[in-house]
Design a protein around this nucleic acid. Structure first.
Length: 458
DNA sequence: ACAGACTTAAACAAAT
DNA sequence: CATTTGTTTAAGTCTG
């Protein structure tokens, strides 16, 4: 395990490393903290080499091989920016020497990190680090691909860069596998390399098969599991917009969401309709059914108050009433529980995985979620209060309401209810594809014109 | 078995 | 007259 190597090897290795680099190159910089002091144990005699430390040569590497070719490529004098220099500190792995200015850094670089066994060995290590990172990246890319394959998400983007919240901007969900009985729900992994389901907890019964039925399945969140509806919608906005996934919320919750999202906290029936179709691909079909349900809910629940307006009737939300019914809903609505659980696993599988990933990298989740959509951000705030209300009822001891915890982390095991396919919507096995790629033309905020929403196109 | 929340379907009436 | 809007009833699902 001698890290020392002859210069030609070093160059060769460097070529290998750099040749495979594209945008990932910068990743090597992130590992400058690797402690090389214990690993660089070269004892070989230094040999003449063409490898030099060129502080101006490379913008992406930590050193450059001093060949005429590379020299010509060098972007001279990056206004005193150097990958090995930052914040007044030498970023040579394991060095961290303080350099007042760039000149002293250069001096330091040439004196302390001149070509010798130690520097060469460190260079070698760094190369290995880069290679490891690339390996890791390749693995992660592969994993991502497998995940997307597993989830039947077709990426139109050539890049494999995870784009968590709009990963499914072009969702293609297909029903390729044989339809399994909802009761049996056999575990048949789609690919041997990927887990059946991203969830690990509990007696999960979600299967790839159930994924295929993603559209008509009835699954709802339960407030019991303190998942703010706005949060979920915000995070999966693109997903819901493009995939015919039934949002895991009750009609009442969705209606309330729509109304609260409006500037004046009031909507006409038609505007509520439009919100549904705009936000959820699922509600672009079977309009007669869900519109009836919306009307039914508006009439049924006391929390929805009809107000006569100048231009007609609008619906508003009586928050007190809504909150009043929450405890019942929380304590005694098992049908919702299953939905929150399932939503965790398949409506937001990307979220879950992403969140774990983000947690590892200390990336704040919700910033991304609401970014680019102020309305949803506001909603998130509004719904946070709803969440708090729910938790008051849920956690009598209050021990579970750790403030920093993400709602997603409070998820629980999975139960999936398969909902029989609507016999009227037999558009073929690839029904989901039909709406998968429509452009966000429903972005117009004046959601009044009754756009042709492909309703009842069977 | 039961209760309660929820969905779906449908009948009906009033308004547009 | 057709459609939309709103109300109500009924049946079914689901789970603690």
């Amino acid at each position: 395990n001698c890290f020392c190597m002859i210069p030609t090897e070093l160059q060769q290795l460097w070529k290998e490393v750099t040749s495979s680099h594209t945008a990932e190159e910068t990743a090597s910089n992130n590992h400058s903290s690797l402690d090389l002091s214990t690993t660089c144990v070269s004892s070989s005699a230094p040999s003449k080499t063409s490898l030099i430390i060129n502080p101006h040569a490379s913008t992406n590497g930590q050193l450059s091989v001093h060949t005429p070719k590379r020299e010509s490529l060098s972007h001279e004098e990056h206004s005193h920016s150097h990958p090995l220099y930052g914040h007044g500190v030498c970023k040579w792995p394991g060095c961290e020497a303080v350099c007042e200015d760039f000149q002293s850094f250069l001096k330091h670089l040439n004196s302390e990190h001149a070509l010798d066994d130690r520097s060469t060995a460190q260079c070698r290590v760094q190369m290995q680090v880069v290679q490891q990172l690339e390996l890791q990246l390749a693995k992660d890319k592969e994993r991502l691909q497998a995940m997307m394959t597993h989830l039947h998400v077709k990426s139109t983007e050539p890049k494999a860069t995870p784009q968590p919240l709009n990963l499914v901007s072009s969702v293609t969900l297909s029903k390729t596998a044989s339809e399994a009985s909802p009761q049996s729900l056999p575990h048949t992994p789609t690919t041997p390399t990927t887990p059946i389901t991203p969830v690990t907890q509990g007696p999960s019964v979600i299967t790839p098969t159930s994924m295929h039925n993603v559209g008509p399945i009835r699954r709802r969140y339960s407030d019991k599991y303190n998942v703010p509806i706005s949060s979920d919608i915000a995070q999966n906005q693109e997903f819901y917009k493009n995939a015919e996934v039934r949002p895991p919320f009750t009609y009442a919750s969705l209606i309330r969401q729509a109304i609260l999202e409006s500037p004046e906290k009031q909507l006409t029936l038609n505007e509520i309709y439009n919100w549904f179709t705009r936000m959820f691909a699922y509600f672009r079909r079977n309009a007669a059914t869900w519109k009836n349900a919306v009307r039914h809910n508006l009439s049924l629940h006391k929390c929805f108050v009809r107000v006569e307006n100048v231009k007609g009737a609008v619906w508003t939300v009586d928050e007190a009433e809504f909150q009043k019914r929450r405890p019942q809903k929380i304590s005694g609505n098992p049908s919702l529980i299953k939905n929150i659980q399932t939503s965790h696993t398949y409506c937001s599988p990307l979220n879950a995985a992403l969140q774990a990933s983000m947690a590892e990298n200390s990336i704040p989740l919700y910033t991304t979620a609401s970014m680019g959509n102020p309305a949803l951000g506001n909603l998130a705030i509004a719904m946070k209060e709803e969440l708090n209300g729910a938790m008051e009822h849920t956690n009598s001891n209050g021990s579970d309401s750790s403030p920093g915890r993400s709602p997603m982390q409070a998820m629980h095991p999975v139960h999936v209810k398969e909902e029989p396919l609507d016999p009227d919507e037999n558009e073929g096995p690839l029904s989901l594809v039909t709406t998968a790629n429509h452009s966000p033309d429903f972005d117009h905020d004046r959601d009044y014109e009754d756009e042709p929403v492909n309703e009842d196109i069977e």
